[in-house]
Nucleic acid binder design. Structure first.
Lengths: 125, 125
DNA sequence: CAGCATCCCAAACGATACTG
DNA sequence: CAGTATCGTTTGGGATGCTG
């Protein structure tokens, strides 16, 4: 009856200080790659299919060309996305998630779920 | 044989433009709450138990008192953490995750997993 | 120890204009 | 359309020092 209700740590192991530091490093490593205001939104956009520059821009409210350009470059450097020639029209390139970029999907799903219910929650005031 | 290998979108639904915009909003809502360099690390620290100010600070390399103080306030405002009197020693407070703060755990688990393998991957060069 | 105030800087971001 | 260059602004965050 003094046990806690929730059961976190499926992955992180027991609540030792070492495991805490390990988790800290891992989460900070993730953060380092997806930091900033726009990287995850871009990845979300590409989760819904290959897109051209302007299509991604349309998906993300308020992003500027400059930021989109800059972030696409960084994401490409980190091998999360890649430019490929469009299948139909020649001379057109589209952006798509790499296999590696797709490995972010579980995390994004969780952030999607959390964000969805969070929006509901704050609407209640 | 032309089917893609991965299966995202369990939660986000079909690849329609509307679902894309919906996902965009949700993920950006999450981002808004956990943005910055320190909020998730703090939550990770508290995932491993109630902690005093200095204990959290010790868990998170390079964080300054100022940032820790500032971020704790914001997290408290967002109802993700709370200050409670320590069980044993009177006149001492500790920080802990709220029930609501704990709902971030699945997302953090995924970021933990991703960060862990990412560290492995970049070590390979 | 716990935490805030002040000051300051660098990085992130935005606005605008421009080119192939 | 697909970006890049330049410039200006904002803000996240660091350093330091002080207080209860």
């Amino acid at each position: 009856m003094m046990k806690t209700i929730h059961t976190p740590h499926k992955e992180m192991g027991e609540k030792t200080h070492d495991n805490c530091l390990k988790a800290m490093r891992a989460v900070q490593d993730s953060l380092y790659v997806i930091n900033g205001k726009w990287k995850l939104p871009i990845i979300v956009s590409l989760t819904f299919g290959k897109k051209r520059f302007s299509e991604i821009a349309r998906d993300i409210p308020k992003i500027t060309d400059r930021m989109l350009s800059k972030e696409l470059q960084e994401l490409e450097l980190n091998m999360l996305i890649q430019k490929v020639p469009a299948e139909d029209k020649k001379n057109v390139v589209v952006y798509e998630l790499t296999e590696y970029g797709n490995t972010l999907d579980p995390a994004i799903q969780e952030l999607y779920k959390w964000g969805t219910q969070h929006r509901e929650k704050i609407k209640e005031d």
